[in-house]
Each structure stands twice: as structure tokens, then as C-alpha cells.
Design a protein around this nucleic acid. Structure first.
Length: 283
DNA sequence: CGTAGACCCTGCGCGC
DNA sequence: TGCGCGCAGGGTCTAC
């Protein structure tokens, strides 16, 4: 469900609220998420104070004051919500898989119906060995992610540009919504091979990735079905969508109908008039 | 090696 | 109302 802007929004919302709070108890549902939640997590986190909250790729990372080596790692998958409750719930909901109670009687709850999410803990020195962190690509907002790096990523790649942008072993954080939006903004057809992208287009894509992700963060992310911010509020970037989830509606630029196709089992939305496959032979 | 596809899971809205 | 189908901001694993 959440892409980089949504995870970033959750981290920013959580950080000022929970930093300094002491963990009073941890409960786990016992159901397997992407991987099982380690049972030791309840004992390991207990009585420790939150030191920091930050994002890596689409993972939420939480650090502790008493144990600077320890990292709590949370991924929301497709349907996960991570919500901070100022008042403890009288009754927990179905699919609440991970519940932290703090010493001021507030609660942090991960609810995830589809269970594609993940909760685990790591020692800092184990981080690079952690299976899911080994193959993470570049952070869009890092210095390493410049036009030259993007050009290198796309070079010689036969895969279509849309799935290339979504490939987290190359670039992290771009998911199904923002990939379509980035390609609309740059007027690039989603089925074009990554290798066919020209230097001028690489520059445009690089710029579009940064501006669209930035704008989405400013809007507090996009709320369609499941996603909410850490305080339960919804984001508003869905009102700025040009193509995503707009099949059959009018293109915001040329008024022709937005088309939906399927690439690697995921929906892609685009305007066939604004985003032509072959610029030499439009239409 | 890189790529395409199946698969993991629950819930919702739609057409019949 | 009930049923079956397709669809959903994720990622991994396997076969080629």
C-alpha cells in the first residue's frame, strides 16, 4: 500500500510523538506476516525508550536509547497501517499483529489484513546481512542518486521503464502509483524499454522522481483505501493524480481518455496521446 | 546474469 | 442476498 511518501509521512508523524516514550509491553498476534515476528521481540523491547524513527526504502526503522545497537524494523506491505493512539483501545481489532504500549498509556498498533507486512528486530551489525536489506537500490533523495546514476541504471536494460522504476533493487521507494505519475509527467510510454530512454528523458525522469515524491510528502501521501498517517489522518496527494486510478477519465492535459494496461500483474495508467510509444510515429 | 510470471493473503465492490 | 470474479500504495521466489 504505501510507497516512499506514505512511509516517510508516517515516520515524520511518529518521531516527535513517540521519541522518549518507554515501552511498557509488547503484544504480537502470533500470525505469520511476510516472516514470523520473533517471539523474543516482546522481551527485547520491554522497558526501552524510543530514541529515533527514520525511513529506509519502504521500511520504518526505530532506535532505542538503552540499546543503540538494536533496530525495530517495520514494513507495511500492501495493507498495513501503523497508528499511534493517544488513548489505549478498549478492544483490539482483527488483524492487529503488533501492539506496543508505552509508559504514558499510549499505544502504537500495526494492523495488516493481508499480512504482506513485516516486523522484526536487528542488531546494527546484522543490518547488511539481513536478507531484505541486501539488495536495496539507491534512495531517491540521496546524493548518489543523480542523473548519471539513473542513466547507468537504465542503460542496456531490456525491461520496460515502468517496472524498472519500481524495481527496489535499483531504486527504492517508487511503487505503482508514483511510477505511473512519473511517466505521465515526463510524457514517456510505460512499455518502452529502459534502454530506449534518451539522455534528455533520463534528466526529465530524474527531476520528476524528486518533485513528485516531494510533493506527495508535502501532501501527507496518497489515501485510497488503507493508508492513513500515524495519527489516523488521511493524505491528500490522490487529488493530484493525473493518471493513477483514472481509467476512462479525461487526461488533465489533452482530455483524451486515460488507459489502463497490466504490466507484471500490476495496473499501469497512462495517456496514449501524451505518452506515445514511438515519438517518430505518434498514434 | 536479467526478466517474466506465479505466489503470498484478506477484503471489497461489482455483476449476475 | 449470496456467489464468484477481479482488483488492491508490497515484495520474493522460481523457471527460463
Amino acid at each position: 500500500m504505501p510507497e516512499l511518501p506514505e512511509v516517510e509521512t508516517i515516520c515524520r508523524g511518529l518521531k516527535p510523538n513517540i521519541t522518549g516514550l518507554r515501552v511498557k509491553s509488547v503484544k504480537i498476534s502470533g500470525k505469520k506476516l511476510r516472516i514470523p515476528i520473533p517471539k523474543l521481540i516482546t522481551r527485547e523491547l520491554n522497558n526501552k525508550r524510543i530514541a529515533n524513527v527514520y525511513r529506509r526504502a519502504k521500511y520504518i526503522m526505530i532506535e532505542f536509547k538503552e540499546d543503540k545497537d538494536l533496530l525495530l524494523v517495520v514494513h507495511l506491505g500492501m495493507s498495513g497501517r501503523f497508528i499511534y493512539h493517544a488513548q489505549p483501545l478498549e478492544k483490539h481489532n482483527k488483524h492487529d499483529h503488533f501492539i506496543i504500549k508505552f509508559d504514558d498509556n499510549t499505544e502504537l498498533i500495526l494492523n495488516d489484513p493481508r499480512r504482506f507486512g513485516l516486523v522484526t528486530m536487528l542488531r546494527r551489525q546484522e543490518m547488511d546481512d539481513f536478507k531484505f536489506f541486501q539488495k536495496l537500490g539507491l534512495e531517491p533523495f540521496s546524493d548518489e542518486f543523480d542523473v548519471a546514476a539513473l542513466k547507468e541504471i537504465l542503460k542496456n536494460r531490456s525491461k520496460n521503464i515502468k517496472n524498472t522504476l519500481m524495481d527496489s533493487s535499483l531504486i527504492v521507494g517508487i511503487g505503482n502509483i508514483y511510477a505511473s505519475e512519473i511517466l505521465f509527467k515526463t510524457k514517456i510510454h510505460p512499455e518502452r524499454a529502459a534502454a530506449s530512454i534518451t539522455d534528455a528523458e533520463v534528466k526529465k525522469i530524474h527531476k520528476a522522481i524528486l518533485t513528485i515524491l516531494e510533493n506527495a510528502i508535502k501532501a501527507g501521501g496518497s489515501t485510497l483505501r488503507d493508508y492513513t498517517q500515524a495519527d489516523g489522518k488521511i493524505g491528500s496527494f490522490q487529488f493530484d493524480f493525473n493518471v493513477y486510478d483514472r481509467e476512462g477519465e479525461a487526461c488533465t492535459k489533452c482530455k483524451s481518455k486515460i488507459i489502463r494496461i497490466v504490466q507484471s500483474n500490476r495496473s499501469t495508467f497512462f495517456c496514449a496521446k501524451c505518452q506515445v510509444k514511438d515519438p517518430c510515429h505518434p498514434g
